[in-house]
Simulated scan of single mutants.
Amino acid sequence: MIDATSASGADHVLVARNLVKYYDEGAERIEVLRDVSLHVARGEMVAVVGASGSGKSTMLHLLGMLDQPSSGSVWVDGQSAEGLSEARRSQLRNRSLGFVYQFHHLLSEFSALDNVAMPLIVRRERRETAREQAAAMLEQVGLAHRTSHYPGQLSGGERQRVALARALVTRPVCVLADEPTGNLDRHTAQAMFELLVRLNQESGTAFAIVTHDPALAALAHRQLFMDDGSLVDTEAQTPG
């Protein structure tokens, strides 16, 4: 159990306490998450593995304040999400979190550079400054030569690296990644995961990654296993 002191402490960038999520369908209650508690330390890479439908993505959505729990609480960078207005949740998300999904969700009408710059522009950064920071981040993911290309001109692996650059450009305390390699072939998926590990080490940004692949999850510092809405922790381990 994680108490309120540790929840808001500097060592944890993400904390969930006793999360429950259910949906009522007529007279039937469908429970998706059952009393889930976890923490992600500053700079830590945590992988969550489980079968499809086990509740992994639902948990990630709650951690990212994209949905609200039926009960329980979420803390992001020392700030409780409970009771926040949608505007305040959006501000906290934009300030503290980055997101990467199985499908890149890039804007097809914008170049790689402007896709990466978009979160900074939403923050009302000067466009020139935003584009400079976006170019630097694309260089970090190995795409300095693709800044002017549009999503339709990029390979699947390149699109995911642009999405990763977009998630990191705001310098969040944690990136939430939902099956970031799920739409890639094995070789490209391995390269993507190794890039995640390198950026975690270099930037100190924490990562919470949902994946169906135990071999890739083994590269993380710690693995969690989701089984029918419940979470099981394992021993901390060193990335391979």
Rank of each mutant, 00 (worst) to 15 (best):
A165G: 10
A81M: 05
A136Q: 12
R159T: 00
V100L: 14
Q160G: 01
H105N: 10
G78Y: 05
Q91F: 04
Q79F: 06
S80D: 14
A163E: 04
V141E: 03
L120D: 10
P119L: 08
H104M: 09
S80G: 07
Y150G: 02
L143N: 04
Q79Y: 07
A130F: 05
P151A: 09
S108E: 15
Y150L: 13
L138R: 00
Q102S: 13
S111N: 10
E125L: 11
P119F: 02
D114H: 12
Q79L: 09
Q160L: 13
H145M: 13
A81P: 13
H104W: 01
S108K: 11
H145D: 15
E128Q: 08
S90H: 12
E139N: 03
V116Q: 01
A112K: 02
V116W: 03
E128M: 09
L113A: 10
H145K: 08
E139P: 04
L113R: 10
R124T: 07
M137G: 05
E132H: 06
S108R: 15
N115Q: 11
N115T: 05
A117Q: 02
R159C: 03
L143C: 06
R159E: 03
S80A: 06
H145A: 14
R161T: 00
T129D: 09
A163W: 08
S96M: 06
A135T: 01
L97Y: 00
T147F: 08
G152Q: 07
R126S: 08
S155T: 09
T147C: 15
V100P: 07
Y101I: 15
E139A: 14
F103M: 13
R161P: 07
S96D: 15
A144F: 10
Q102P: 14
A135P: 11
